[in-house]
Design a protein around this nucleic acid. Structure first.
Length: 639
DNA sequence: CCAGTATCCCTTTTT
DNA sequence: GGGATACTGG
């Protein structure tokens, strides 16, 4: 073997890397070299003659998978890049396209993102909302949340409502029929939401033994990263994938489970050895990332949790500065403190790409972004609103989507509402006609309406006439659509040059694809997620960016210096999550994840004298999640 | 049946 | 500060 594994890995890591066949569970504390272990195992398997395309690496984001395989390739050779990797959703999407006929879902189905799903729900909601109802139905956002929770936890709608939304119990009947109708409509029009991808993927693997065998003979070695954040459906998929050969390596850390809100259950980790008898258990506890003072704080934070496995992180890096807890008088001072401190760190030689500012919710960084601009500090922001969710991008993409799936009701609706003199009723009528004719996009050309002239509709017809009868490349199609859309955009928004630029960026991404199906899937499942860029610096002039990120999006990453802002009681944890024990524990784990991202410097910063609208109180106390930290382990300050 | 305006409510995290 | 809803005029 060419790689000197035993020189490069500690005993437990080595054991995991050398393990070959059968089930293995690696419980890996934060910073314990979990990613490293996965990478080395990929390399080791390939070096031992396992074919790279028989390995499947399931991770939380595509980026994580790509990053790992790139590192594996560096370690061994380019073969590692042939390993299949991605999210459960992306993997399900792949097998569903291939075996669509089995489930009768149409291989060119459309993936509904969250707002598409909500739009579909809103339509049905309107139809169902009768004047005889006692109250109004929950808003579309809430309804989608209920449906999604049911799907992800594999339970019924009424259970979810009784457990988490008991104030809607009186509307359970209506919500159940709304859910049924939602399912019918998706099926009829070849639409799948995020949850359907997993659900149908699971069905494929559990109810069709022949397909399960085909798939498992392709993928002989399954690796699942972040297993603590899988939900019951994903667990079923894992079981299905490995039933024939039992070659499964799951890696996770119960203390870092932060996705319970979407059905994840770290019970999956506990159940693993029961589900796979003879599981090899390996624990990685030595931390290679952070200094001991940082780990002390992290360990103390977890003291507050009831539901956990006793575990204490330790490191050989005993020296280091004490983490700081800074009170700032007001949000502005918080922003100024953070920005100036970052500037100072940069002057002392820490590159910006080694610094991150983390926060609980995406809007927490708004004020800081202004301050960073003032200081001329370039940054990228990860998490929160994606630019693919903004209206103009969705409009543009909708025009492409109906080329692939002409019965995509949501996209039709979007496109038609852009036109003058067409509102919800007319749009619905047009879609109904297209759908009933059942001749694909051609249905558009024989629409009959009461009004004689519809200039907008005529323009739309000629757009699709142009797109229909030629052998245009993807890019040319995009340009044609943009040319059509630009005047519409101009009428709707004042800042349309900026929006056009963003659409051009999307076309740039599109030009790297060979077919629309893949492009559209990726836009829904793995959109480019670095949204806001500091406009003072274009991408070309500097590669050194500060990172602003939600804690959720920072999972698995590390930086030299970390600032956790809005560490204010009432914001993190928010007032919503302090009532239920399990909610509060998830916040605690979230704080734990945030602190363990830091290698050398850690700053908790909170503004004081913040008026809270929802309670009418003034917030001034540091986060209760920090209460368990012994006073001597933090250096306190005020600015 | 569309489009514009006034009013009330809630405000997380992601595939 | 945005979204859903209700109401009004065309």
């Amino acid at each position: 073997m060419s790689i000197p594994y035993h020189n490069l890995l500690n005993a437990s890591q080595l054991e995991a890397v050398m393990f070959s066949n059968g089930p293995m569970l690696v419980i890996a504390g934060a910073g314990s070299g979990k990613t490293r272990t996965l990478i080395y195992r990929v390399a080791r398997l390939i070096e031992d003659g396992v074919s790279p395309d028989s390995i499947l690496l399931l991770t939380f984001t595509r980026k994580a998978a790509e990053e790992m395989l790139k590192r594996a390739a560096k370690l061994l050779d380019a073969r590692c890049q042939q390993v299949s990797g991605g999210t459960f959703h992306a993997f399900s999407n792949r097998i569903l396209r291939k075996y669509a006929s089995k489930l009768d879902i149409g291989e060119r189905f459309t993936i509904l993102d969250r707002s598409d799903a909500e739009a579909l729900i809103a339509g049905i909601r309107k139809e169902l909302q009768s004047p005889f109802d006692a109250g109004t139905l929950p808003r579309k956002h809430t309804i989608a949340q209920i449906f999604s929770k049911a799907a992800n936890k594999s339970i019924e709608i009424d259970e979810v409502i009784e457990e988490d939304f008991s104030h809607f119990t009186h509307q359970i009947e209506t919500l159940i029929s709304l859910h049924q109708e939602y399912g019918i409509r998706k099926r009829k029009n070849y639409l799948l939401d995020y949850d359907d991808l997993l659900l149908f993927g699971k069905i494929l693997l559990t109810e069709f033994p022949d397909i399960r065998e085909q798939i498992s003979s392709t993928y002989r070695y399954i690796m699942v990263d972040e297993y603590q954040d899988t939900n019951p459906v994903q667990a079923e998929i894992t079981y299905g994938l490995t039933e024939c050969h039992q070659n499964i390596m799951a890696v996770g850390d119960d203390a870092q489970s932060i996705y319970a809100f979407r059905g994840a259950n770290f019970q999956n980790i506990m159940d693993f050895p029961k589900k796979f008898p003879g599981t090899k258990m390996i624990r990685l506890e030595e931390n290679y990332r952070s200094t001991q003072p940082i780990l002390n704080v992290a360990n103390d934070i977890m003291l507050g949790a009831q539901n956990k496995y006793e575990k204490t992180l330790y490191t050989k890096i005993t020296k280091g500065d004490l983490p700081r807890l800074i009170a700032a008088r007001g949000e502005k001072r918080q922003s100024i403190y953070v920005a100036s401190k970052i500037e100072k760190l940069r002057q002392q030689g820490t590159p910006l790409n080694q610094i991150a500012v983390l926060f609980r919710a995406s809007f927490h960084s708004f004020d800081l972004e202004i301050e960073l601009n003032r200081y001329g500090i370039p940054f990228i922001k990860v998490g929160g609103f994606q630019f693919t969710e903004s209206a103009h991008i969705k409009d543009f993409i909708a025009h492409l989507k109906i080329l692939v799936n002409p019965y995509d009701q949501i996209s039709w609706h979007r496109i038609l509402l852009l036109l003058d003199q067409i509102g919800p009723k007319t749009a619905q009528d047009i879609f109904r006609q297209v759908r009933e004719k059942d001749v694909g996009l051609d249905g558009l050309f024989s629409i009959k309406l009461k009004k004689k002239r519809h200039p907008g509709l005529e323009a739309l017809k000629s757009l699709y006439e142009e797109l229909g009868d030629s052998s245009k490349t993807m890019l040319e199609i995009g340009e044609t659509i943009l040319a059509y859309y630009e005047p519409i955009l101009g009428k709707k928004h004042d800042n349309h040059p900026k929006r056009i630029k963003e659409i051009e960026q999307v076309m740039e991404i599109m030009s790297r694809y060979d077919d629309f199906d893949q492009f559209l899937s990726d836009m829904a499942l793995e959109p480019p997620n670095t949204s806001v860029k500091n406009r003072l610096f274009s991408e070309e002039t500097t590669r050194d960016y500060l990172t602003l990120s939600t804690i959720h999006s920072a999972k698995g990453l590390e930086w030299h210096s970390i600032f956790i802002i809005w560490a204010l009681d009432g914001r993190f944890p928010s007032n919503y999550s302090i009532y239920r024990e399990e909610d509060l524990e998830e916040e605690l784990r979230l704080m734990y994840v945030a602190t363990t991202r830091a290698k050398e410097n850690l700053f908790f910063v909170y503004p004081t004298n913040i008026y809270d609208k929802s309670t009418g109180r003034i917030l001034y106390r540091p986060s209760r999640l920090l209460d368990q930290i012994s006073p001597e382990m933090l250096k306190k300050g005020m600015v």
